[in-house]
Amino acid sequence: MSADLGPAETKRRKRRSVWELALLTVAMFGFGFAMVPLYNALCELTGLNGRDKGMQIVASVQEQPDLNREVTVQFLTVVNGGREWVFKPAVSEMKVHPGQLYTVNFVAENQLDQDVVGQAVPAVTPGKAARHLKKTECFCFNQQPFKAREAKDMPVRFMLDPELPADVHTVTLSYTFFDVTELAQRSAKPNG
């Protein structure tokens, strides 16, 4: 089409197209990275993936037990990548009333002859229950150092808030334990 515009104009238009497309390329490269905060925001907003507030501490909660309602809370534990670790809940499930605080103990034991650092990552199923599971205390808020062969009792203090959707009768709280020894060492050393 533009061949009848003369060589100078054609050249100008070509250059313009190239710049536009190069800009689009750079923008899409940026968009790939922008998907990370976008995804996290979306998960936060919808409770998708059961991540939501799982990693966040809730400073204070008001107890208003709803004694007419009983919900089953199940506890699941996974040790990532077959590490030499015992990690299990003291009870596998409990019946709770929304609006009341409960404590459940998790038992962890390092079976290696060396010090390790663990990090538990929580997930809640179903996703829509995630934001209603509030924790005032959890071992998952921090990295957990273990001496060689050390065993620990680790408590979680949690409450289901009364706004938990009525059709939720069972909530599963799962923890995956990761070995983050390397990561912890790296962040301990400045500029490391």
Partner: peptide, 18 residues
């Protein structure tokens, strides 16, 4: 390759080739 194709098609079509 893709940028090349787009720039070519948008700017270098023969007269009359809408």
């Amino acid at each position: 390759g893709a940028i090349n194709v787009v720039v070519t098609i948008l700017n270098m079509r023969a007269p009359g080739m809408t």
